[in-house]
Amino acid sequence: MEEKEKQIICRLASGVKNMDEKMTVEAANEALVNHIDPTQAINNGLLAGMNQAGLLYETEEYFVPELLLCSDALYAGLDVLTPHIKSVASKARTRMVIGVVQGDTHDIGKNLVKLMFETSGFDVLDLGRDVPLNAFVDKVKEVQAQLLCMSTLMSTTMDGMARVIEKLEQEGIRNTVRVMVGGGPLNQSFAHKIGADGYAKDAIEAVRTARQLLTSGTEDILP
């Protein structure tokens, strides 16, 4: 890689990591001017920066506000670069459905989880917040999702997750999809109790857990 190209990619990454939207957008424009492959710029620059931010979150240097600003910078950079990606036949990506269960509108956590999955190459269908339980099942069926992620910040709505899993059973599609749950009041034992396949305490761990779950099965379609 050329020195200049390296520098630009590096600035894309540190723009995201350092919550610097302006720097990220400038670097993205420079990448275009210098004919850097936008896919490369995204993967090695923007997404690498977001992953570094994720590590800082894990070590408690960053918290939610910092991650939100990193994601703003990331999306600003993507806005510049993605229109220039020539569509090529992409390899099959893991398709997943995500949402906050009915009765809860707290979606910051869900949005961060979604972002980390997207940056890891998953094909994410976001149902949003306050999602009716049937909508999860219908969407999983419709798009033949391999992964379903549900979250809630409120203990009042946790039981909704169990009901979604029951509905998947009733529809006979429980074994076609891995189910992960997360959110403030939850933990591994609750996930186990309601028959979910996995639990993750934050957005970074979620991607790792999902990868493990998906490779432990038979149909391994990983990004």
Binding site: Q102, G103, D104, T105, D130, M154, T156
Partner: peptide
């Protein structure tokens, strides 16, 4: 706001 039957009001 929305007021679910079984839980506190949530801001929409």
């Amino acid at each position: 706001i929305e007021e679910p039957d079984e839980g506190p009001a949530i801001i929409v």
